[in-house]
Every structure is written in C-alpha cells, then in structure tokens.
Design a binder for these strands. Structure first.
Length: 274
DNA sequence: AGTGCGACCTGATCGC
DNA sequence: TGCGATCAGGTCGCAC
C-alpha cells in the first residue's frame, strides 16, 4: 500500500519523467474513486500541462498550468504507471491520460480505496481530503519540541497516534510497525507514558525509517505497490516487524507476536518492545 | 478526547 | 475442483 515513502517515490519519478508535458487525451472509467465527476474532470484537464508535483502526507498533488490541481490518493492498492505507446494498459484502470509524447499515465486501483479529485489551487485549504493532514514528518518544522508537546497530553495508544495523519502525515500500518520496532516501543503503549528516552527514540525512528524507505523506493508487500515503471520497492526486504509474525526478532530472537491495536493488525517483539 | 465499530472493495488464501 | 468464509488495508462517519 502507499504510505509516505511510496508516494514520495512516485512524486520524484513523476517530476523527473512527465512534468512539462501536455495531457492530450483523457479516458475515464467512472467509479466511486472519482470525487469529482469523471467526465467533468476529463473535460477540465484536456490540453492542460503538468507543471508541478507535490505531496501532502499520502496525497499526491498534480499541479497544472491552468490553476487546476489533481489530488490522488492510492488507498491500499492504487498504482500510477507510465506506459509506453501501444502497450496494453493494466486491469482496473480508472484514469488513462495520453501525454503529448504518446506515452500514457494510468491510474489503476483494484480495491478502489483510493480517490481522485480535481480542485482549483485556491480551494485546496478548504478540502476535506487535506483537512486532517498534518505536518510532514520530514518537514524541518517538525521539531523535537513540537513532538514532545504533541505527545504529552495523549491518552491513547501510540500506534493509532502515529497513524492518525494529524501529527505525522503519511504513516500507515507498515511503517508504524517498523517505527515502533526501531524505537523499542509497543504499539499499545499510551503516548503520554513515554519517558524522555523513549520519546527521543520514537522521534528519531520516524525520520530514520521513512528516510531509509524512501531511499529504497518504498515497500512492495503482496505486490500492492510499484513505481511508475512497474518495478517493486526494495524496502520490503528490510522489514523487521510488519508481516513477520512468528519469526524471530532480529535483535533478541524472541518470536514476534501479533495483536490488534486500534483495530489494526500489529506485529511486535514482546521482549524488546516495551 | 478517545475508542470501536461498519462501510467501502477486491483478490488471495484457507477450510471443507 | 470449487465453494464460501475470512482477511487485509485507509479513511470516513457514527455511536458510545
């Protein structure tokens, strides 16, 4: 699924590969992923030129020269693929854009948990899709002091807090497990009970794990994510907790266990995560 | 403020 | 072989 590192990977690739190109033709398959009516969206974007690519948490923002912004969320099974001319497109397509050079940009999403919405730049601040998206964990404004302050009054478990998007936009189930493993903290720990050492470990783990995952091009678990060229991310081989229930902990060799925390499947080491 | 649901949706996997 | 049940995930909306 696409969390911050996967969306960041797509953003960088789209910036390098397709910015400046005109969207000559747009084919849509109307479905619930469109939060702007599919045909309206297609008509509005025809002939527009892609000028910018940004990311807010897990949301990808494609900015056009015409003051329009396309918001794309990949949900858990969404993909954006750059397909050479004349190559057949993949299944479950929702939006297919033919670029001026003949290649197509395809948004597909088998499980349709993602969404696509078109907005004007001036409307962005008021969109519900961005309303709960907080600071990026890799934003320089995300300081240690702010982090301590935000954790202090929290009565809930730390994992749902990490995944809430409100404090740290972009962390989902995979990286939440990885971050907590790296920080030696159990997913069910109440955030307000973290001592200063644990707070510091958590703060650094968030940045370290996400940065390393971006460097690997993200995680492809169950082949749910690929880059725009259809290639898997390489962080999957470096996962320490997610998807490893029953396997020995890399640090202490205790078997990793599974539990539900905040309704989410979680894997952790019962010995060295406290 | 928090938690814990169900809804959305499809494909993979499991038990029979 | 084939069927149905179960699970996974992000987000929203709702009840407590």
């Amino acid at each position: 699924m696409a969390e911050l590192p996967e969306v960041e990977t797509l953003k960088r690739q789209l910036l390098a590969a397709v910015t400046g190109l005109r969207w000559d033709r747009i084919d849509v398959v109307p479905s619930s992923v469109f939060r702007t009516p599919a045909k309206t969206l297609a008509a509005a974007l025809r002939g527009a030129r892609l000028a910018r690519v940004d990311r807010r948490g897990k949301v990808l923002l494609l900015g056009f020269d015409s003051d329009l912004v396309l918001l794309v969320h990949l949900g858990m099974s969404g993909q954006i693929l750059l397909v050479p001319p004349a190559e057949p497109g993949p299944r479950h397509r929702h939006l297919v854009t033919t670029l001026e050079d003949g290649r197509t940009l395809v948004f597909r999403d088998p499980r349709r948990f993602g969404f696509i919405r078109l907005a004007r730049t001036a409307e962005l601040a008021g969109l519900r899709e961005l309303a709960s998206v907080g600071l990026d964990p890799l934003d320089p404004g995300q300081t240690w002091e702010r982090f301590i302050h935000d954790c202090a009054g929290r009565a809930g478990a730390v994992k749902p807090l990490l995944m809430s998007q409100e404090l740290f936009a972009g962390v989902g189930n995979i990286y939440a497990d990885e971050i907590l493993y790296a920080a030696h903290i159990r997913p069910s720990r109440v955030a307000a009970t973290l001592d200063p050492v644990e707070q510091k470990q958590l703060f650094h783990a968030i940045r370290d794990i996400l940065t390393a995952a971006i460097e690997s091009g993200g995680t492809s678990f169950d082949e749910a994510f690929t880059d725009i060229y259809g290639r898997p991310g390489l962080y999957g081989g470096r996962l320490k907790a997610y998807g490893r229930k029953g396997e020995p902990c890399d640090r202490c060799h205790t078997r990793l266990v599974h539990a539900r925390v905040g309704g989410r499947s979680s894997v952790f080491c019962p010995h060295c995560q406290r």
